[in-house]
Design a binder for these strands. Structure first.
Lengths: 343, 343
DNA sequence: GATAAAAAAACAATCGATTGTATTTTTATG
DNA sequence: CATAAAAATACAATCGATTGTTTTTTTATC
């Protein structure tokens, strides 16, 4: 085997004195090729170190064994678990995964969508950038029958597959749990809620839970973070704790925020959950490590990735032009640990 | 613009009554094409919604704008930061990133390397699977002049680019720091060290630091985890704490292990760092959140990703057949926080 | 206005696998 | 053994962009 030459089906064809079409078919066990030839071809292909050029196949067939994944970032635990779920599922079916990080920038997202389209990905899984309101850059996939799944951060008005949790219900459950623990003055940490995203839904749940239990929502108890980071979380938490009458409970729309709330409270000598009960969202790894252990809402990240990938794979294969674009809701649960348990 | 037709340079050529070669060159500002034509072509391309087919370009040029990344998992904070660094750097130069997770399986790694090769990636960045000892499946890249960078978990005997930290020195520094704090009986948590990897190096540093300070290493003080998880960390920590004479300090080769050590110690009513000083490795996000804050060794994940990607990009472009394959060492520091500070 | 030189654009092959159609070979049957 | 049917294989076009080589067009010069 030459060191620097890439082996193609032409090389195999020449060696065996066969046509390239025969080689191509033999390698995929086509029924018109005799057993004898198939065996021979496979043996020689192996010996010569043949690796199919997926570009050529993709160009010819106008499709690739690749799924494009477009997410705000890969470093958030929720998203890295999501990606892991996608990647494992894709791999099982022989599909590869191209990853792009929008960094929550709308412009980057537009450009990356175009790039994925140019790469002829067979499907796209996307969690929207925080700043995205217009989603017309995804229309190209739909009009070319490339399956598109939005996951977690999804647009409201785009008719395609969606995999989400019921953020409203989850926000409701989380808040109600705090009420059941005896909290009457419940703060809420949220982020970028003005963009009408999943945080807004969680907040709606929070507000409705309060109303159901005859608690009047107070604007001062809701803090909207600029970014979901530990530092911003600390700032926001302090805003709540600095109030003349601080809250006796906090529902944070993410575990990072919840953790910063716990730390900020502890730093002031407040007992959690004694003085203030706290519940987060996501069930990030840190939630079972922080002291006190953080009560939170489970958010099945890997499962969401798996299901998203499965939807893509199914809709590539079936090639149904107008498959019914459904929303898949996954269950969440209130995971009661120490930080919210007053009784 | 038709809804379901993909626009190619042929469509543009037909519309403008020009040759496809002219279109192709105009789109990249080739000097043999007149300004007038270039402007006209670009305008029409834009109007028709032309997106270049990267498969076709890749097939023709036998190279793609894609970097393959092969890592054990994407969910560990160190690796997701590494990937993030790679992705951002690649994106800036117009390169995409294909991700594969070996899940620490040797067989998966072999198959994925082949798959990346078939995808004609322009370069490969890999962090080896825990179980990999034979690395001959990477030879195909080298012999085809596809730049290959190993990062963090690198093979000893493979002549290619490597981006690592000095694990020996870091292990030494961490251990010496504990000694300086007055620890005399220092435990060590490590993982899969028999495979001769970076954990082994850290352990060598640990052992040499002890020797330098005339402390005799004891086998009972070294615990080798089966897997780097919180649960295994707890088991291993308890093994140390259950000793007749438990250690007064622990150097854990990873922050997860260190965190489990802190929790296990606290659960027994031991004070950290009072009764037992603990230092980890990586500077994972959790290290500044755990109580007490974890002292650790900084591990510049994103930077390592960036540098790895830069090496790939540089060596694609220069196309030097025999560029000197160097090892890039990045600095680490002892980050002293609460968990190890006795004075 | 003829001609050479320069500029612009066209022609045509190429990358490697796939696939519809044609051709050759084999097998079966009277 | 001839012939039809079936099986196996070959032929050739195709996917879309790129690029070395020609050809055509434009510009400059005498």
């Amino acid at each position: 085997m030459e060191e620097n030459k890439v082996v193609t089906i032409y090389d195999i064809a020449e060696k065996l004195n066969l046509a390239t079409s025969t080689i191509s078919r033999a390698l995929k066990d086509h029924h018109t090729i005799s057993e004898k030839t198939i065996k021979k071809v496979k043996k020689v292909a192996e010996e010569m170190g043949y690796v199919p050029n997926t570009l050529a196949a993709g160009l010819r067939g106008n499709k690739t064994q690749t799924i494009g994944v477009l997410v705000p970032t890969v470093t958030q635990p929720f998203l890295s678990s999501l990606i892991s779920g996608i990647e494992i599922t894709a791999q099982k079916s022989g599909y590869n995964v191209i990853i792009m990080q929008s960094n929550d920038s709308y412009e980057a997202e537009v450009s990356m969508a175009k790039s994925l389209y140019g790469s002829r990905v067979s499907g796209v899984i996307c969690s929207l950038a925080m700043k995205t309101t217009d989603t017309s850059h995804f229309q190209q996939f739909v009009s070319k029958d490339i399956p598109l799944v939005f996951v977690d951060r999804v647009p409201k008005d785009f008719d395609t597959f969606k995999v989400i949790i019921d953020n409203y219900a989850a926000g409701f459950k989380a808040t109600e749990h705090l009420i059941e623990q005896g909290c009457t003055r419940i703060g809420h940490l949220t982020a970028g809620s003005k963009f009408g995203n999943l945080y807004t839904e969680r907040m709606r749940g929070y507000l409705d839970a309060l109303k159901k239990h005859n608690i009047t929502p107070k604007e001062e108890l809701i803090v909207d973070l600029k970014a979901v980071t530990y530092e911003e979380g600390v700032k926001a938490s302090n805003k709540l704790l600095d109030l003349k009458t601080p809250p006796d409970g906090i529902f944070a729309s993410g575990d990072i925020m919840a953790v910063s709330a716990i730390q900020s409270a502890k730093k002031r000598g407040l007992s959690v959950p004694g003085d203030i009960a706290i519940i987060g969202f996501n069930n990030d790894p840190i939630s079972e490590i922080i002291d006190p252990n953080l009560s939170t809402i489970t958010h099945p990240a890997a499962k969401m990735g798996q299901i998203s990938a499965e939807i893509i794979l199914k809709n590539i294969k079936s090639a149904k032009k107008n498959a019914e674009k459904g929303i898949t809701y996954l269950d969440t649960e209130v995971l009661v640990r120490e930080s919210s348990q007053k009784n």
